[in-house]
Design a protein around this nucleic acid. Sequence first.
DNA 1: AGAACACTTTGATACAGATCAAACGCGCGA
DNA 2: TCGCGCGTTTGATCTGTATCAAAGTGTTCT
Lengths: 248, 248
Amino acid sequence: MLKEQIKSLAHDCDGCPIRHRAVCARCESDELERLEEIKYYRSFEAGQTVIWSGDKMDFVGSVVSGIATLTQTMEDGRTQMVGLLLPSDFVGRPGREGSAYDVVATTDLVMCCFRKKPFEEMMVSTPHVAQRLLEMTLDELDAAREWMLVLGRKTAREKIASLLSIIGRRDASLNLREATGAVVFDLPLTREAMADYLGLTLETVSRQMSALKRDGVIALEGKRHVTIPDFTRLMDEAGDDADGGIFA
Amino acid sequence: MLKEQIKSLAHDCDGCPIRHRAVCARCESDELERLEEIKYYRSFEAGQTVIWSGDKMDFVGSVVSGIATLTQTMEDGRTQMVGLLLPSDFVGRPGREGSAYDVVATTDLVMCCFRKKPFEEMMVSTPHVAQRLLEMTLDELDAAREWMLVLGRKTAREKIASLLSIIGRRDASLNLREATGAVVFDLPLTREAMADYLGLTLETVSRQMSALKRDGVIALEGKRHVTIPDFTRLMDEAGDDADGGIFA
DNA sequence: AGAACACTTTGATACAGATCAAACGCGCGA
DNA sequence: TCGCGCGTTTGATCTGTATCAAAGTGTTCT
């Protein structure tokens, strides 16, 4: 059924779900035509590795649907997630041969790819692509730095609350909000992936999830379906300034 | 004497020490002239705050000499360094009003500034500036992600070794290498700043520095002058793949 | 239905690094 | 010269999270 998804959106940027948020967001229709010429879709199943760290990357691209992770691993197996790729996020670095990270599909994944060489040429000739990529890279850098504060200075409980608030914020801005004001979403990550994100062990993640549930900060249905009755309370637990930008 | 420094390099990009590495690196001479028109120098003393988090930033700019830090602080005072700014590094984000971080001069500091509005206009009209800024931002993102692995997964000893190896690598590539092959440099950071960089307490930093010294991984003269007799050994202690790219 | 498997929860214990506390060294101004 | 202050070191103790271990849940395959 992945193949079906691909067929359904093949070669039509106008109907593309990420048209207005990805690298191509700023492109005029003539620029878009040039991109269409060099683009192609690839799909990956949940768990599949998209790129191995160190491998030569001959393409760059955008996540169209699904979720992928960027991880770094030490020789002894310790691993740290360094990026969480959601639809519209960009993968790969123009001007670098190999990937510095493992890219792994967390869910079934569809990517819109461009061969690297032609894309790099477009970067020079099409300022709108380069502009948008700069903007996206700056956003990613901001996110990485916020994450550094989480990794370096927050307690396990605060880390979990921070992660839930990041995911909840994103989902709230797009779709799922209950009439009551509660935020509801499905966790796209296993306990182990959450641990890799936060620099914890999966046991600690599990314990802190149980604790947040016991304290009424979150409600769980099954292991993955999360309800946040009071988002401000969650932000509080995350140690973030509760300036509540989301609910403005 | 800061004023003297400023005078000595005022308005002459050709003699600028960061000419070939900063945002202006790719500029042709006509583009450089346009930059010269909107640039001005500012100097800061060690310890001075360049920008407060949340403040409106009406300029962007490059570090010409000295060192500055980017830090984030929680309400209760926990702080995490999220960037270490060396000569040629860029400060500020085109397209954002306020700064998300405190920028503090760690040593006496000279910056080459551009008023934000004209600089943003140049970003559009001068592709070489935008191209170079993208490249630099991607490098910073890579550095931030390497740092995330350090913060999330490394032990205190590995963290210290990682920091020393980062500073040592930079200095080794520029200048100070002994005939013996040893790397020698002055630490530009206090123990407290190192702790903020690494997500540790200053006591732990001090203890691990003592331990590395005791074990012969580093030698100290005074508190700040560091000698690394065997860089590969240090990389080992940092838990990094000792693929020794520096000494290639 | 039952077995096999992946993911998760919970418990007992160990330990790295935090915290609290004291003292050291050194440059600087009086 | 003294003494003050800042950065640093070192010591004693505490604690949050990792580690080791076992059992629970739910899903897929036969």
